[in-house]
Design a binder for these strands. Sequence first.
RNA 1: CGGGGAGUAGCUCAGCCCGGUAGAGCACUACGUUCGGGACGUAGGGGUCGCAGGUUCAAAUCCUGUCUCCCCGACCA
Length: 576
Amino acid sequence: MRWSRALIPTLKEDPADAEVVSHRLMVRAGLLRPAARGVYTYLPLLLRSILKVSQIIREELDRMGAVELLPPILHPAELWKETGRWDLYGPLLMRVTDRHERGYALGPTHEEIVTDLIRREVRSYRQLPLSVYQIQTKFRDEIRPRFGVMRAREFLMKDAYSFDPDEVSMANTYQKFHDAYCAIFDRCGLAYRAVEAEAGEIGGTVNHEFMVLAGTGESAVLSCGACGYAAASERAESAPREHQLPDGHQPKPLEVVDTPGQTTVDEVAQLLGKPAEAFVKTLLFEADDNTVAVLVRGDREINEAKLGRLLAVERVEMATPERVVKVTGAEVGFAGPHTLPDGIRIIADYSLAGRGDLVAGANQTDRHVTGLEIGRDVEPHEWADVSVAIDGDPCPQCGQPLKETRGIEVGHIFQLGTKYSVAMGATFLDESGSPVPFEMGCYGLGVTRVIAAAIEQNHDDRGIIWPVAIAPYEVEVIPLNMDSEAVVKTAEQIYEACQAAHLETLLDDRPDRAGSKFADADLIGIPWRVVVGDRGVEEGVVEVASRREAEPVTVAPNEVANHLRERIEPARHGSD
RNA sequence: CGGGGAGUAGCUCAGCCCGGUAGAGCACUACGUUCGGGACGUAGGGGUCGCAGGUUCAAAUCCUGUCUCCCCGACCA
């Protein structure tokens, strides 16, 4: 392809609204242009990269026995009502209405549509296990789209759905997808790790997230250097701790202090001149018909999923303000653990273990208490791990401190069990002729996010450094002087030879000066560069250099294609 | 949804306080000089200053409303 015809609109300056490096570089390097908030046109360079990633996905999934199909984007509302997700998915679901006033969703994920297909078409255990996948645009009306394609409202995703006759078979299929994902991310040149994760709204029990390690990632991962435990922050657990006060701790008397209008930990902390760690945050939750008080250190957050598992309920919800007033006798913002009514179960998070002289709400409007001691002023019914884990918490497996790193979630795989098959009446007939619900799994992989993550991990201050396997082109030929007949002729010959050698080649045929061509070449980051200049052509050589290691070698023009093929072909299949 | 910021040329921005014929750099067109790491000169094209009202002899500038975009935060007591 000739640059002059390729629609590669590079920019000298950073776009004003792009914050993370992948977004900046995608716009500057002419890969991406916005159409609306969180909605983008993928320009030719980006599309080529997308097709490469898609091809890698197809090869790996086909190899493990999954089959590709293409369901609709437009989903009839009835299917989403069958699983209850028409309401549960909330505003994240894009909805449209047709001329007959029938409701549709623009697919954010395809459990319903695929399960509907399979329940109609698959009758017998003889047809199982079956795994289907698609690569298609997904729609999610995100609260806050940001970071370019990392969190867009319209994005490309590979999603797969597996149907197995029993749990053992399903776990086996799950492991195959797990391995295929590793192969895919390896081939895309990503440094990643699979971590235990929270299922969230999708449901099911066992699930893993694939995190590409990057400081700008939106997700936090907690991992243990000692035993290898790793989990997403929403999921990560921490080991139990004993409530043992430090030696020499002198308990103070419980005192009530006025804190008019100060309802948050930060406000009261500022007023009293104490750190947030010295606070007890007392949160009231409704679990089924019971009200539960959960105590957590002032600077920590409750993990509602953990709380739900502890209480063995499907969902916990914060108590309403009316309920808080009724239980504590005070306005919201002044709840404390020490004078709660008898019927309230009190759960203390391990983050409070070993802490004394605490500040808490007084259960009186506009008042807090200081000098609170757990064990003296309040006896929790239970100590538990119900807070969001943070850096330094003890590892649940070995007790060593967990370390927090950031990552980009590029894939998430789930063992769903029978949640959707039961909800939608999707069954097959087993050997005895009895209907049995399918054991399902689902497997997401963000195609555009993989590319953003690859750029986050592979760039320098001048631009992108594409891994060969997903680069839009493999070779860029740069004639430095378009007015020199000899240079142009040599460059054209090399361009032809590279194409004949099946190297994906871009020829920078623009009449620009050398400096700006070099700068653009660095920016768009094609892995191999062939520089054709007057000086070299006179001596019968051109320069070949990789984007990653800038040191060029001189090569005779008629040997360039072979020289490059030897280097590029081995790198195509996997990371460079 | 709450809080902050911004809408002026394709892009990055100045001008606004203090009202008086709309600017710079980059990009684009032409010509000339230049030509191995984002050249220079000359000439040129391009903007109803987000939109709608209002004040005024006069509004990018002051006032009101509205829309859009960006950032931070979202049942965390």
